[in-house]
Computed example of a mutant assay.
Amino acid sequence: MRYLWLTLGFLCVGLGFVGIVVPGLPATGFFVAAAWCFSKSSEKFLHWLLNLPLVGPLLQDYRGGLGMPLKAKWFASVSLSLAVSISAVFAIRMPWAKAGCIALGLIGLWYIWTKVPLRERVLAEQEPSDQS
């Protein structure tokens, strides 16, 4: 099983790097999945992933329960909406598939805005209150 998790981890890392340059592909989600796979297979590669300059800090925040910054939530939402819209209008021909694509996009937006904590809010709640 270790090799399966390791392989899936590297597949997710590869897709994450592609997602950095391809609009609409959720890079962060793939890196989070890669971190999970590496946590089950290799501390060495988990450490490597968590220390990458571009994604390491975001992964560390997410794993620490800090969630996503507001700017990242907006970027993810706009990218997701554009990708779903373009797919539904131009790439998908069958009405049931269009509806499925839109439904999955809406579920993704719902998840980002309701289940992933807002980093700024979590940090504000962690600060000690200034009561004199």
Rank of each mutant, 00 (worst) to 15 (best):
L4P: 01
L4W: 14
L4R: 09
L6N: 10
L6V: 02
L6M: 15
T7H: 03
G9Y: 07
F10T: 07
L11E: 07
C12R: 00
G16K: 05
G16A: 05
F17C: 02
G19Y: 06
I20H: 03
I20P: 02
I20S: 08
V22A: 09
G24L: 07
P26K: 03
G29L: 14
F31Q: 06
F31C: 03
F38W: 12
F38R: 02
F38V: 06
S39G: 11
K40C: 11
S41E: 13
F45N: 01
L46T: 00
L46Y: 07
L46D: 00
W48R: 09
W48S: 01
L50T: 01
L50S: 03
L50E: 04
L54N: 00
L54V: 10
V55S: 00
L58P: 00
G65N: 06
M68I: 00
M68W: 08
M68A: 05
K71T: 06
K71I: 03
K71H: 04
A72H: 11
A72V: 06
K73T: 01
K73V: 04
K73F: 10
V78G: 04
V78W: 02
L80E: 07
L80S: 13
L80A: 14
A83Y: 08
A83I: 13
V84W: 06
V84L: 05
A88L: 13
A88K: 06
F90H: 12
A91F: 14
A91Q: 12
I92V: 15
R93F: 11
W96C: 04
A97W: 08
K98F: 10
A99T: 07
A103M: 12
L106W: 09
L106K: 02
L106Q: 05
G108R: 01
W113H: 14
T114G: 00
K115L: 14
V116W: 13
V116L: 15
P117N: 11
R119S: 08
E120I: 11
R121Y: 11
L123P: 04
E127L: 15
P128T: 09
P128V: 11
S129L: 15
D130Q: 13
D130H: 10
S132G: 12
